[in-house]
Structures are given as C-alpha cells and as structure tokens.
Nucleic acid binder design. Structure first.
Lengths: 149, 149
DNA sequence: TTGTAATAGTTGTTTTTGTAACTAACAAGC
DNA sequence: GCTTGTTAGTTACAAAAACAACTATTACAA
C-alpha cells in the first residue's frame, strides 16, 4: 500500500497549504476579532493602505483576486466606513477607493501587527534563509500567471 | 500613505497563500476533471493510499482536517466506490476506511501525477534548496500545533 | 448499576466562495 | 448616428466550507 518514495507531507501544494493555513490563523484571529474582517477585506485594506487610492480592478490585478471577491469586500468595508468610493468623472464606470480615517487607523494597527508577526514567524531563520524562502515563494506564485478574468 | 519598510507581497501568510493557491491550481484541475474530486477528497484518498487502512479520526489528526470535512469527503468517496467503510467490532463507534480497487487505481494515477508535478514545481531549484524550502515549510506548519477538535 | 463524561462520527444551518450572467459606460468602425 | 465589442463593477444562484448541535457508543467513577 505504501509507495517507495512519495511523501504526502513533502508534496509542495499540500505543504504550502498547510503552512499557509497554519501561519494565517493567528493573524486572522486579530483582524477578525478587532475589526470583524474577512481575509479578502484585510487584503483590500492593505492594498489601499500601502499603495493609496486605487480602483477595484487595480487591486484585483495586484492581489490576484477575482473581481467579485473584491466587489463584496469593498461593499462591506464601505458599510463599516473603512473605505470611501468615488466615481471617476472621466470614466463613470470606474470607482476610486480610498481609506477613511478609520480605515487608516485600522490599517496602521494591522500593518504593525503583521510586521511583528512576520518577524515572529521567521524568527528561527537567519536573514539569508528568510530572504531565500520568500524569493522561492514569490517564484512559485509567479509560476502560474494568474489566469483570472 | 506608503510605509517605510513593509511590503505586503513579502508578508509570509500572504505569500504562502499566494503560492499555495497558485501551485494547487494545476493539480486541482486534474483530480477534479479526472475523478470529480474536491480537495478534501484527494487528501483522504492519499492518506488511505499511502498509509493504508485507517479511521476518519486518524486521518483528521494527520491531515489536520476537521472531522466534518472528513465525514463528508468519505461519504462522497464511498458513494463513488473509491473507499469502503467497515465498523470496528470491538468499538462500534469507529469505522475503518480502505481503498477499493478503483480507489487504488485513482490513487496510483494521482500519486504519480503529484510526484511529477512536484518535480516540475521545484525544477528551478537545486536539491539543497528544495530540501531547505520544504524543511522551512514543515517548520512553519508545525509552529501552530493544530488546535483542532 | 447508574449517572457523567468522553469519543467517533453525522447532520443541519449559516457563511463564504465560485461561476455565470447581468447592467452600465465607454470605444471604434462603419 | 448606429451596431459590435470591451471594460468596470454588481448581482443571482450554486457549490463548498465553517460552526454548532446532535446520535450512538464506550469509559469510568460513585
């Protein structure tokens, strides 16, 4: 029944999922408890916090997130007054999103948590290893060129 | 608006999620198209294929999967005649799961695909890097000791 | 025994996600 | 002007996941 040399726990997609899930838990607890946010929502929040005002499509392209996810995340974030939406005058299909003061505050808080948390997660690694790990992960993410519409 | 030294795309939970999602896509396509399976289902299948007959709880403990997920995965796998369930005589709460011939065949096929796919994913890395990557991922997965019930 | 707690697994209900179809606005060709 | 095609974003419906409550069985202690 067992196979010569295949170890499920070494299968990269499996391993990545496990690591992703495990490493997201603690952070999730925080954005959920403090702000009632979902994963899609903190991501949108972070994009706006980091890169400033942008449109849903731009966020989608950067985050590799489907537009319906973003639409719903923005809706909830707007309801809770974390972001504002404003129509573009030139092209009235597009909507510019930006953080409110409250959104900025939440972002500042979570951003700081994230940074600390990231340090904590990679505490066991030397700087070189840490960089190597992230580089490999970026490469893996890029391998499949985001076939999203 | 932008922050001195925080890069979202370098935030480990984010990065891991991106990599996990990206690297799962191709494999997902295969188990879905060929066998109509969900992620939970191929995982159960692999556990049985790899470790032989075992119970739902054992799978849950190993795979860090909630019991309801497993219950439903097993249900579907049993309906489609990939696994059989048999009650334990000594303790009639527990059920032993095992692959049918059909289940074995599916496992053999997918197992081989997985192996190839894993090689492909890590093709750009040397053996040492590959090992280091996996080791770090295992460590990250283990960091949070599976608070599941 | 019998009463309480624990364990294996299932079922029901609610959230979230995925997928596809849709509206509204623009663009370009004719 | 009118088609036809494209893009931004939303909405509706189906699939999947999360969470909580449940049944059945065993364990164990008074």
């Amino acid at each position: 029944m067992s196979d010569a040399d295949f170890d499920l726990t070494q299968f990269l997609p499996y391993l990545l999922n496990q690591a992703a899930e495990a490493s997201s838990l603690e952070f999730q607890k925080i954005y959920k408890d403090r702000y009632g946010m979902l994963r899609t929502e903190w991501r949108v929040l972070f994009h706006l916090g980091l890169y400033g005002r942008m449109t849903a499509s731009e966020i989608g392209a950067r985050a590799n997130m489907h537009k319906t996810k973003i639409s719903r995340a923005v809706q909830r974030l707007a309801e809770r007054r974390f972001v504002t939406r404003s129509r573009d005058d030139a092209d009235r299909r597009v909507e510019h999103l930006a953080l409110t003061a409250q959104g900025q505050a939440a972002y500042a808080d979570l951003h700081q948590v994230a940074q600390r948390y990231d340090d904590e997660l990679t505490a066991g690694l030397g700087p070189a290893e840490r960089a190597a790990l992230k580089k490999m992960l970026v490469a893996l993410s890029a391998k499949f060129p985001a076939g999203f519409t």
